[in-house]
Computed example of a mutant assay.
Amino acid sequence: MSKWSRPTSVSIPTIWATFEGRQIINGNKRQYWIQDITDEYRDRIVEYMIEEFTMDEPLCKYSSNLNHHLGLVCLTKDEDGKPIIAAMNCTTLCSKYDDESSGDGLQVQVLKTLMWVKKQVDPFSKFNITEYLDAMGLYVPPKFRGEGLGYELLKARKALCRACGLKVSITLFTSAISQKLADRVGFKDLYAIDYVDLEKVNPAFKYPGIQEHTKSLRFMYIVYE
């Protein structure tokens, strides 16, 4: 079991970034901010990830385990000035002391695929760390796409990690869109494999039609100096 806990000196929620959107609405650009996921947003984010994220991502890995208080949510305000969710990145802690979880149905196939990819290289030894920031899904609802929110969420990991004493962020990016965002932010490949080769490793790792839009799985990292 992980021995890590968020420093008590880092308040919850902390606002990690503020920025303007790209689209002009009623003569103004929408204002956004990125903060920690708090209890008031947790249930809605779980709904988004289960009902909508899994429809967009090539692989459907998701867990509602946000107990380390490392998840990020991008908020804006509606016409009445009330904060609303614009995007989310379910970032979480990955520790060398954690036990692998299990699932059922499609989750077993997906989980086994991801676990196999992550076992091809040992980030704990490579970076001499015991924990790193991982993520179980980044999602932007259709209404807010085109505003650069995914990019801003990936960037915000830097401030979060530095404040919480985490030196590295590593994530398995499964779609071409998220991989391009990761490239822009500065993530590099730790391990990558084409889906066609993944299927050769194990016929159970077959995802029909996935190669039409995404060539490979990319296990990517970024080190925060």
Rank of each mutant, 00 (worst) to 15 (best):
K3Y: 09
W4I: 02
W4C: 01
R6F: 03
R6P: 02
P7A: 03
S9Q: 15
S11D: 15
S11C: 15
T14V: 07
A17D: 12
T18V: 13
E20A: 11
R22V: 11
Q23W: 12
N26R: 15
G27Y: 07
G27N: 10
N28C: 12
N28E: 15
I34F: 02
D36E: 09
I37T: 02
E40T: 07
Y41R: 01
Y41L: 02
E47L: 12
E47I: 13
Y48F: 12
M49S: 10
M55Y: 14
L59S: 04
L59W: 05
L59P: 03
C60A: 12
K61L: 14
K61Y: 14
K61A: 14
K61G: 12
S63V: 08
N65R: 14
N67W: 09
H68M: 13
H69N: 11
H69F: 10
V73R: 01
C74G: 03
C74M: 05
L75C: 03
E79S: 15
E79G: 09
E79V: 13
P83Q: 04
P83V: 04
P83W: 02
I84F: 02
I85D: 08
M88K: 11
T92L: 13
S95E: 06
K96C: 07
Y97I: 02
D99P: 01
D99N: 15
E100W: 08
D104N: 12
G105V: 00
V110G: 06
V110N: 00
M115W: 10
Q120T: 07
V121Q: 02
S125M: 11
S125G: 11
N128L: 09
I129E: 01
E131K: 05
L133G: 07
D134G: 08
D134R: 12
M136T: 12
G137Q: 07
Y139H: 11
V140D: 04
V140L: 09
K143D: 15
F144M: 06
F144N: 03
R145G: 08
R145Q: 13
E147W: 02
L149I: 10
E152K: 10
K155N: 12
A156I: 06
A159F: 03
C161A: 12
G165V: 05
L166G: 04
I170M: 00
T171W: 01
L172E: 06
F173W: 01
S175P: 00
S178D: 11
K180M: 08
D183E: 12
R184P: 04
G186P: 02
G186E: 08
F187C: 03
K188Y: 08
Y195H: 02
V196W: 08
D197M: 10
L198Y: 05
L198E: 01
V201E: 10
P203D: 06
P203G: 03
P203E: 04
A204N: 10
F205R: 00
F205S: 05
Y207N: 03
E212G: 15
E212K: 13
K215Y: 05
L217S: 00
L217K: 06
R218Q: 07
M220S: 03
Y221H: 02
I222A: 00
V223L: 09
